[in-house]
């Protein structure tokens, strides 16, 4: 059974925090509540899917600052901002920085649930994607340095002959490396290989120095 997405409620107002946590729990989410930004940043369970419901106005570290801090810490969780009053400049700023939504605290519960749901769906999608990438990256990491060089050249669309010439190895060896690549990456076609590598944002082991003497 997959655990229900976890909503992290960060709000300094205890009664509101409790109330909104209850409401979300009754709506089927698992909820963890934090009384301050610091508390939330310290206890990070970011690996669990879900989203953050963040109060915009908090003493010390306010919502926008928390958003910054999370970005720095590469927290993948989408953020839904809540504010006691509709503060347009700050909401614009929050949205621009990638907040999922910006709501007032007394908004209709449909809007709140909708925003949370959207954030959770996005989070799930992000996570699926990053899991795939992580897998890909780990596979790529398993390639030998030479194989990686060959891969880079393959992705650049070079022929075996050119690769052999560029890398100063025999064309036959290139073929052998390519076979290893497809086996290790479990990929059949060059097209698929190219798409995958681009998706992973992989650039190979860096510009390869030509062998000395050439």
């Amino acid at each position: 059974m997959t655990p229900s997405p976890m909503v992290r409620v960060v709000d300094d107002d205890e009664s509101f925090r409790t109330a909104v946590s209850r409401f979300l729990r009754a709506s089927g989410y698992s909820v963890r509540a934090y009384g301050s930004a610091a508390e939330f940043l310290a206890d990070s369970t970011w690996q669990l899917p879900g989203c953050i419901l963040l109060d915009l106005e908090m003493p010390e570290l306010d919502g926008l600052a928390v958003q910054e801090a999370l970005k720095t810490a590469q927290c993948p969780l989408p953020i839904v901002f809540l504010s006691g009053r509709g503060d347009i400049p700050r909401s614009v700023m929050a949205m621009r920085r990638g907040a999922e939504d910006f709501l007032t605290k007394e908004c209709a519960h449909e809007s709140l649930l909708e925003a949370i749901q959207r954030a959770v769906v996005r989070d799930a999608a992000d996570r699926k994607m990053s899991a795939r990438l992580a897998e890909l990256r780990s596979k790529l990491a398993r390639l030998s340095e030479r194989e990686q060089e060959v891969l880079r050249e393959v992705v650049r669309g070079k022929l075996n002959k050119q690769i052999a010439a560029d890398l100063g190895i025999h064309e036959r060896t290139v073929k052998l490396h390519r076979t290893n690549l497809t086996t290790k990456l479990r990929i059949q076609s060059v097209a698929e290989l190219t798409r995958l590598v681009q998706e992973a944002g992989w650039t190979g082991p860096g510009p390869v120095a030509f062998p000395k003497g050439q």
Partner: peptide
Amino acid sequence: ASALAHELSQPLSAILRNAEAAQLL
């Protein structure tokens, strides 16, 4: 007034969410 509106909106929002939670329960 604006700040007090915020002071009021906290408990009122909490009441709203609590009531909705109770309805769901």
